[in-house]
Write a protein that binds this DNA or RNA. Structure first.
Length: 501
DNA sequence: CCAAATATTACCTCA
DNA sequence: TGAGGTCCATATTTGG
């Protein structure tokens, strides 16, 4: 499309290569250090020492380390050291993955694994959250035992993408999302449902997909992944746990209801990590020299990952094979979101900065190309495209100040609703999401509110406002099993959880 | 032609 | 309390 864009990507790609090289270099250095001092397997104490901040008020206030070269920050290499120190860039605060000795001795990909305890930011590793996730995860797996294997219909499974014999498919009993209608007037924000979970700008929010615990996961600009265990708040301090598995903005989080012990996160630095609670590690499952802007998984398949890489590539990664099984150039610019229809998981929607959102049928591959069923054109970049809970509608959000609603058997009905989406530079882009049925869409507004759009009357029918919402909520998630529980995340690291009275 | 600079925006931090 | 720093979005303008 516009050639200028590509050069921008080229520049970023080079930065990523550089950063990844640094990362790998640091892993190698560490590996050698570990080899030399084999007696002291883990130097936990040393790892933790830097966190002893003068006054340890709150975990979330510990200084955040950004591993970035001056060049990557757009500064000349000889920029003043003082400037670097001002950013907290200091030997003692360098956060380097420690477990390099766990890297496979295979020749090519260096799979850097970070243990969860090493990634933990705080004075002392607190295992309560991990234990809680484990117990809830085991419970949900038990309820799935005897679950019948679901065969994905036709084409795509023939291509052997992520289909496994027994454990790859989901639990058929487990609904993707609980449907329900709500009275918008009854939504309220209680003061105890506000928390600063991570420092800095939140890029992605997700509820843990279970009814057994109310837990929020967020990813921020600095590569932190933060958990807020809302239930545990009373007996467990603030219930907030922050880790640093990445070193650049966390672009996406993918969780599956029937496999709660595994969580994928994608990052602008080109890495995809898997937080495996059973193994207590953040595994490196994929690394690219391009940035990864979006990640998703099919609702019925835990074994493959779909992610947007570089300027417009959709990559399908087969976890079992440990390699990318398909790659399609779907867009001319970065893919901001990837979503699947709950009606039919072969139907996928993508949104892109190239100004379009498209719906694809993964079974329809023609000469190594996916053919789109429908393309929705906006005047400018499209920030998101999400299917409604039933799977029959699609909501798109664009910087052209439009929220599009697409419906009809062949997605032939498109209506464009005006909504001011100029977030500027400091606020993350708005992404309209669906609630718990096909009637309402939620999206942030620049006046510290949440606009509620009706897909039927196709206008703004309400705006959620609260004195406790002190910043603009820009990224949202609707709890998949708790109707009426809506999380909004801000560019200052805060999360607001709206609930029904 | 392509790269670099610029304006926009609102949050948090720290004097 | 208010100024300063932010700086991976995006489109437009300027510069070599």
């Amino acid at each position: 499309m516009e050639p200028q864009k590509l050069t921008e990507y080229e520049r970023r790609r080079l930065e990523n290569i550089k950063k990844n090289e640094e990362m790998l270099a640091s892993l190698k250095v560490n590996s050698r250090l570990n080899d030399l001092s084999a007696a002291t397997k883990r130097q936990r104490a040393q790892t933790k020492s830097y966190k002893n901040s003068p006054e340890k008020k709150s975990k979330t206030e510990t200084p955040i380390v950004i591993r970035r070269s001056l060049r990557a920050r757009g500064m000349p290499p000889n920029a003043s050291t003082a400037d670097g120190l001002k950013d907290g860039f200091d030997e003692t605060t360098l956060k380097i993955p420690r477990q390099a000795h766990m890297m496979p001795k295979k020749s090519r990909p260096v799979m850097g694994t970070i243990t969860i305890s090493d990634a933990y930011i705080g004075t002392e590793w607190d295992k309560k959250l991990i234990d809680k996730i484990l117990s809830v995860s085991k419970k949900s797996q038990l309820s799935c035992i005897g679950g019948v294997k679901e065969e994905t219909d036709g084409g795509f499974s023939d291509l052997a993408v992520g289909v496994s014999e027994n454990e790859g498919t989901g639990c058929p009993e487990m609904k993707n999302k609980l449907l329900g209608s709500i009275d918008v007037e009854k939504l309220a924000l209680e003061p105890e449902n506000v928390a600063r979970v991570v420092p800095g700008r939140i890029m992605s929010v997700r509820f843990f997909p279970t009814a057994d615990m109310t837990t929020i996961v967020v990813g921020n600009k600095y590569g932190n992944v933060g958990f807020w265990n809302v239930d545990a708040e009373k007996e467990d301090g603030d219930g907030i746990y922050v880790y640093q598995p990445h070193s650049a903005p966390v672009s996406g989080i993918s969780l599956q209801p029937f496999l709660l012990s595994k969580m994928f996160t994608s990052c602008y630095d080109g890495f995809i990590r898997l937080m495996d609670v059973e193994k207590e590690v953040f595994d490196l499952v994929y690394s690219s020299e391009y940035a990864i802007f979006s990640i998703s998984q099919r609702p019925d398949d835990v074994r493959s990952l779909y992610f947007g890489e570089g300027p417009g590539e959709l990559n399908i990664w087969d976890e079992r094979a440990g390699k990318s099984s398909f790659s399609f150039k779907l867009h001319e610019d970065k893919i901001n979101t990837i979503d699947f229809s709950s009606e039919n998981s072969n139907i996928m929607a993508t949104s892109s900065t190239d100004g379009t959102a498209s719906i694809w049928d993964l079974r329809k591959i023609d000469s190594n190309k996916l053919k789109s069923l429908k393309t929705i054109s906006h005047k400018r970049a499209v920030y998101s495209a999400y299917f409604s809970p039933s799977g029959s509608c699609l909501a798109t959000t664009s910087v052209d100040d439009i929220v599009g609603i697409v419906s009809g058997a062949n997605y032939e009905d498109i209506s464009m609703i005006y909504h001011y989406n100029q977030t500027g530079r400091w606020i993350s882009t708005f992404r309209a999401i669906w609630g718990w049925d096909d009637s309402y869409i939620f999206i942030g507004n620049m006046r510290r509110g949440v606009d509620v759009l009706s897909s039927i009357s196709r206008n703004i029918i309400a705006t959620l406002q609260s004195e406790h919402m002190s910043a603009i909520p820009c990224r949202f998630d609707a709890h998949p099993y708790k109707v009426g529980m809506l999380a909004g995340a801000t560019s200052g690291g805060q999360v607001y959880i709206w609930t029904l009275d």
